[in-house]
Design a protein around this nucleic acid. Structure first.
Lengths: 227, 227
DNA sequence: ATTATAATGTGAAGAAAATCACAAAATATG
DNA sequence: CATATTTTGTGATTTTCTTCACATTATAAT
């Protein structure tokens, strides 16, 4: 059945990403070893949390010796299947799609956008490293490159249709930038990234923060009044 | 102290975004009322969860009558401070920055990018609805438009520097697209959006899914063998 | 008007996640 | 080599989040 797959990235996984980013930076700085509290300080979590997370993902260090950065990064590569290449297709070459197609960091992490698609024949003439095809060639390309992951960057109205097509063609994971909750079979992973929501949540927390600060000031005021 | 502020969007808040997207769609379809289970079905959560979330955010409906969509959306507007306009600056007019500056949906949600900045004098000549300034005019613009929220879309290497500048100029909330964990004072909200991580987590869950499916098939096999 | 029904709202229970706390192990020191 | 120190890894505890279950209330039916 086609349904909403409630998909939320686990917080522990998000923290693993944090740790990795941090490790990459430390490595570049010439550091070779870290302790749980090093990572903790750098990422804003507790050292217990770091160790619990490592334990969850089967990462072990040396008692008293901490963790070898190279070894850690190697383990993480495995967790994220970075050892093999991942062929990806991108649908929708609007502003965002174009930007994503040029995003060099995907390649650096073994995620290769092998082709992009757009219904607009004008867009199909964009000259770039990655070819822009008409959607009717999707099956051919997906089969040829054994693509299992897709990026949706089409307008809201066509997102669900594109998603249905992709699922039919054997795509197993989708990252969706259209502000439209996609319905897909439960075995297909759909990560809905909503840029507006991300920005709005910043506004939400800023306001909350400001309110909390106000409250704290009032409390301070009351405290002062006692004396 | 300048430190990593561990900032994670609460899952309940993310669900509120889901509900809202869903409500907007239902409203467009002419629906006026919803029940907790309507939203639950549409968003892939349980109806209890919907009611608990509403309760957390102080949203109340009518027993037996469900919720008026208009009223719900009104309450949500208040939660996200959509009643007032939010002036935003964007720093970095590379591929992603340019795409974000053209993203119409921000405006539709009362989030106005009033100015963008780039050190590249060539970029400053981009002609678009939103002006591209040299970074040395940041103070002027931020003050004039009372900007409190910023979008960082600069390369990794300059992200922290830009962040420091923004904080100094009174910015209270940042959404950061550079793949670099930003250090900021704890009272400043920083939402790090890492596109690679988002895509990689899809790959992670796809592989997990495939592994789980394999396991299920093995289990089925064993079950069959009993007969 | 009375009864039946269907939905909310929320304490209680259960599950999951984070923190605590300490034994075990590895390294350093004398 | 023995002892002290430091850090890991993980059960136990606490906290947070989710689900359950049902009293309460609004609407519908008779």
């Amino acid at each position: 059945m086609k349904k909403i797959t409630k998909y939320v990235i686990k917080n522990s996984l998000k923290r693993i990403f944090l740790y990795r980013a941090c490790l990459v930076r430390l490595k570049m700085m010439g550091v070779e070893k870290v302790f749980s509290y090093t990572l903790a300080n750098e990422t804003g979590v507790t050292s217990d949390q770091v160790r619990k997370d490592f334990s969850e993902f089967g990462i072990r260090g040396n008692k008293r010796g901490g963790y070898e950065i190279d070894e850690l990064l190697g383990k993480m590569e495995k967790i994220f299947h970075r050892n093999k290449d991942h062929n990806i297709v991108l649908i929708g070459m609007g502003n965002l799609g174009l930007a994503l197609s040029k995003y060099q960091r995907f390649v650096q992490r073994n995620m290769n956008i092998v082709a992009t698609f757009d219904i607009d024949p004008f867009k199909q003439k964009i000259r770039s490293d990655i070819p822009v095809y008409s959607p009717d060639r999707m099956k051919e390309i997906i089969d040829r490159f054994r693509v299992r992951i897709a990026i949706i960057a089409v307008p809201e109205v066509s997102a669900q249709e594109v998603c249905d097509d992709l699922v039919r063609l054997g795509i197993k994971g989708i990252i969706n930038f259209a502000p439209q909750l996609l319905k897909a079979p439960p075995e297909v992973i759909v990560n809905n990234v909503n840029l507006c929501d991300e920005l709005e949540s910043v506004i939400y927390y800023v306001h909350k923060q400001i309110k909390a600060d106000g409250q704290k000031n009032i409390e301070l005021l009351y405290r002062d009044m006692k004396y």
